[in-house]
Amino acid sequence: MRYPRGVPRSGAEARRRLQQAALELYQERGFDQTTTAEIAARAGVNERTFFRHFPDKREVLFDGEADLRATLIQAVAEAPDGLRPLDMLLCAFREAERILERNRPFAEPRLRIIAMTPALRERDLAKAASLSDAVAEALRQRGVADRLAGLAAVTGWAAFHQAAQAWIDDPSQSLYAHLLRVFDDLRALYGSDVPAQARPEG
Rank of each mutant, 00 (worst) to 15 (best):
H53D: 02
R48G: 10
Q33W: 13
A119L: 14
A66G: 05
L23F: 12
A115W: 01
N103M: 08
A126D: 15
L120V: 06
V45F: 15
R112K: 09
L86K: 01
D133E: 13
D124T: 10
R98W: 01
A134N: 02
R110C: 12
V45C: 15
R142N: 10
L23C: 11
A37N: 05
F50I: 09
L68N: 04
L151W: 09
A43V: 01
L86G: 07
E97S: 11
F106V: 04
A96Q: 08
F62C: 06
R104D: 12
A126F: 13
F51M: 00
G143Y: 07
R84L: 07
E47Q: 05
F50A: 10
F62N: 06
P80T: 05
A136V: 06
E122W: 02
E47Y: 00
T34E: 11
L139T: 03
M116F: 05
F50K: 08
L90S: 11
P118L: 08
A126E: 13
P80H: 09
L61F: 09
C91Q: 12
L100C: 02
A66H: 07
T36Y: 13
F31Q: 04
E24T: 10
A41R: 07
A43L: 02
D67L: 11
E97V: 03
E38T: 00
L151F: 13
L72W: 11
R98Q: 01
R123K: 04
L25D: 11
R110W: 10
E28S: 07
Q33Y: 09
A96V: 05
F93G: 06
R98S: 00
E65H: 08
G143W: 07
E122L: 03
P80Y: 11
A107Q: 12
E122R: 01
A128V: 05
A77K: 06
P85S: 06
A129T: 03
E78T: 00
P80E: 11
Y26C: 03
E108V: 12
F93H: 12
F51H: 00
L61Y: 06
I39G: 01
R69Q: 08
R52P: 00
T35V: 09
L89A: 13
R42G: 03
A107G: 09
E108H: 12
E59L: 01
A119I: 05
R123G: 00
K57W: 10
L68D: 04
E59A: 01
R52A: 05
D124A: 15
A115Q: 03
L89N: 11
F93M: 07
T36C: 14
A129M: 07
A138N: 06
D32Q: 11
P109F: 14
R121C: 13
L120A: 09
A41K: 04
D146A: 04
L83C: 06
L25S: 07
R147E: 15
P105Q: 09
E24D: 15
R58I: 02
R142D: 14
D87T: 04
R142G: 12
A149G: 10
L83E: 10
C91F: 11
L100I: 00
A43G: 01
Q33S: 11
L100E: 04
D81E: 08
C91A: 08
G64T: 08
G44I: 00
R112I: 12
P109Q: 11
I99F: 15
Q27K: 09
L72Q: 06
P105A: 13
L89T: 10
E59Y: 02
A128I: 03
A75H: 08
R69P: 01
R94Q: 09
G82F: 08
D87A: 14
